[in-house]
């Protein structure tokens, strides 16, 4: 019986302790709010730069319509893939670590033909005062780009006097050897640090 009484006291104490922890946590949240407000005033904007661009695996330029019988596998409208890899430098000028929580940007060829919007929500920490690298790799095919061009870029092509396949061939041959301008536009890099969130817009053109 004595054991039971002791056990009951123990349970009640644990419950009270949990409640107290909860209240402290709640206070902690309020405290975090205060810290957040304080941090907002001192958080220095991280610096994002596009360091390099490459086509990591080049498969040339080709397109097969669905009427062409393949040597193996299923037939279909297929176009050459064009993977692109962008290396960003992310510098944290703050005296505390920050996390890159998301990166989003649109890739355009010849500055105005948007070919993909990239999104990544992997979290990467950058120590105080340090610089880190973030690599984003995208993938498009000549087939997906063709459909995008035909449905959404028709007027732009017409204005320039280009035909869709002509533009695709020029891009698929010119992007890997850096003769076609590749633009990273409408970028948004989301950083958090000390309870604060900051979204940095980003634009750059590969030279």
């Amino acid at each position: 019986m004595r054991k039971l009484v002791l056990l009951t006291v123990l349970i009640v104490s644990m419950a009270l302790a949990a409640t107290a922890f909860g209240q402290t946590a709640a206070k902690g949240v309020k405290k975090a709010d205060v810290q957040k407000k304080a941090a907002q005033a001192v958080m220095i904007t991280p610096i994002v730069t596009l360091e390099s661009f490459e086509v990591p695996q080049y498969d040339g330029w080709w397109y097969f319509a669905a009427k062409v019988e393949p040597t193996k596998g299923d037939k279909g409208d297929r176009g050459a893939p064009l993977p692109m890899s962008f290396l960003f430098t992310v510098k944290n000028p703050n005296k505390y670590p920050i996390a890159l929580e998301g990166a989003k940007f649109t890739v355009a060829f010849d500055r105005e033909f948007e070919v993909i919007t990239y999104n990544n929500n992997d979290v990467m920490w950058i120590p105080a005062g340090k610089t880190n690298h973030f690599r984003a790799t995208t993938m498009i095919t000549a087939r997906s780009a063709l459909l995008s061009l035909l449905v959404t870029g028709g007027y732009k092509l017409k204005e320039k006097g280009w035909d869709a396949f002509g533009a695709l061939e020029r891009w698929w041959k010119g992007v890997p050897d850096y003769t076609v301008p590749v633009t990273v536009k409408e970028g948004a890099f989301t950083f958090t640090g000390k309870g604060m969130t900051k979204v940095i817009p980003f634009d750059a053109t590969v030279k």
């Binding site: 949990a18 922890f21 070919v115 498009i140 997906s144 780009a145 995008s148 449905v151 959404t152």
Partner: peptide
């Protein structure tokens, strides 16, 4: 008692997926 009183109990992320077109015919 502990589970009920502890405010962090039960908190977990809810995962939602998205299948979007940002490259194709309706991009």
């Amino acid at each position: 008692l502990i589970a009920g009183l502890c405010p962090v109990a039960g908190a977990a992320d809810i995962k939602i997926g998205g299948i979007m077109d940002t490259t194709g015919a309706t991009s």
